[in-house]
């Protein structure tokens, strides 16, 4: 059983997707199963085990500050559905992140 009941409306809102009532039931159950599966990890005693950031024990992967090539404006905007003045046009947004 899932450790907590999933708030499917909240998750859908965060992901900016609309779900039908049927989809909500389906996904709530599926996501609940995933949580239950991951919850098993909580049963493992990891006291004294150092958390790891990555499967490879590498650190300090750093690159010198030497600028490489930039895309042309044309290429940069190739995927933009709408553009004006070499910029991407998006619906008016006033909310600040």
């Amino acid at each position: 059983m899932p450790s907590e009941k999933i708030d499917i409306d909240y998750v859908a809102r965060l992901a900016r997707i609309d779900l039908t009532e049927e989809e909500k039931v389906t996904f709530a159950e599926q996501l609940g199963n995933i949580l239950a599966y991951v919850d098993k990890l909580n049963q493992v005693d990891v006291s004294g085990v150092e958390p790891m950031a990555h499967a490879f024990a590498l650190e300090n992967v750093l690159d010198d500050d030497e600028p490489g090539p930039a895309l042309t404006v044309k290429d940069a905007l190739r995927n933009a559905p709408a553009q004006r003045d070499n910029q991407i046009v998006v619906p008016k947004v006033v909310e600040d992140a």
């Binding site: 500050d65 030497e66 600028p67 490489g68 930039a70 895309l71 404006v73 905007l77 070499n86």
Partner: peptide, 23 residues
């Protein structure tokens, strides 16, 4: 810096829009 934080696309102030990008 001369390039960006997580890629080497060039960075400087005052460039024409969308000329300092990469994949």
């Amino acid at each position: 810096t001369k390039s960006k934080m997580f890629t080497r696309a060039p960075y400087h102030y005052g460039a024409e829009p969308n000329t300092l990008t990469d994949p």
